[in-house]
Design a protein around this nucleic acid. Structure first.
Lengths: 182, 182
DNA sequence: AAATTAAAATACCGACTGGTACTTAATTTA
DNA sequence: TAAATTAAGTACCAGTCGGTATTTTAATTT
């Protein structure tokens, strides 16, 4: 997961993964079947471990602006609080965004998982906007499009971060892009 | 250029290019030296042929909003007017954006060219915003940051298009993202 | 027409890719 | 304890990558 997350997904080979994880190639194949199985398993783990808590925060019911600010802070965090198993800092960016950038290079199972993960994010955003509308905190923009817009802006920010853009600049971009929401 | 533009830059091999262009590999190496030389030459050609006219349009001096609308229309055009040498439609997206997405896989010369092309775009946007400010058409946002924001939004839109997102949806995203400018 | 030079193509190089037969070591069952 | 089963590892497969040495063809010059 760390290899796929901190480098380009399509440029980390199975050989290299075996080397770093100090495991034999047949061992990897016994566990995951093929490359598609590995990348899918990685994406599922990532979703449960890193995406689910964010979605929980969004669904927690804080005021719209407050939740939006939290989201911006989480996204533009500079490899800080969360830890991977072996106490290494998490890389910048988002593994799901990276996987979707490399969509054409993914296997079938991993693509399905990536599609599902994206749709999950969209419905979480959509429900959030719906609740904000019910509370009179959001304008007349269609909830579905609002979700698409929020997703597009977050993905763009995460891409910029993964490419090494300074996080305060990315934060300013996100702030402007979200300034007309609510 | 068409191969790099319509597919992922890093997944088109020199062998494949020779196959499609019906030229021998030593012939390609005689002309461009190495892969870096080829990708750089492609990017230079792209800049002169497709980017320069857009920059000219921006510098032409139309009102800010009018220029911005033209820019959005150009970006979200669906493989329409412009043609490549052999009368094939141009692919969606932007080759410069694709090259920058694949930055880690580029050679040194191509990286320099891509950096230069990005800085060129930023100064074009910055000058444009400066002129708009002088004409009272733009608020108090710093010109440099406005340029960075415009660039980020255009790049994001072009990435979405290259990934096959419908152009009317991308247009709506751009419209919202630019709604607070001016 | 013969000799020289330049262009082009065939055929190859070592390195690496995803994936697997086959052999060896450890564990479980009889 | 001996036999059967499972796990793990070595060493390999064909295919492709970027890049070249070498040979063949074509165009010049003498």
């Amino acid at each position: 997961m760390r290899a796929y997350w901190s480098e380009d997904v399509e440029s980390v080979s199975l050989n290299e993964i075996c080397r770093r994880a100090e495991l034999s190639k047949p061992g990897l194949y016994r566990e995951f079947g093929n490359e598609d199985g590995l990348t899918k398993a990685v994406l599922v783990t990532y979703r449960k471990q890193f995406l689910a808590p964010v979605y929980q925060m969004i669904a927690a019911g804080a005021p719209f602006r407050e939740t939006l600010d939290s989201l911006v802070s989480i996204v533009t965090r500079n490899g800080s609080a969360p830890m991977l198993n072996d106490d290494q800092e998490v890389p910048n960016g988002c593994l799901l965004v990276k996987m979707r950038e490399a969509y054409r290079h993914l296997g079938e199972e991993t693509r399905k998982e990536a599609d599902h993960a994206k749709e999950k994010a969209l419905t979480v955003y959509e429900d959030w906007v719906e609740r904000a509308k019910a509370a009179g905190e959001f304008g007349e923009m269609s909830s579905r499009f609002a979700a698409i817009y929020i997703d597009a802006q977050l993905n763009n920010a995460l891409s910029l971060l993964a490419r090494g853009e300074p996080s305060d600049e990315v934060k300013k971009i996100l702030t402007v892009a979200f300034s007309m929401l609510g």
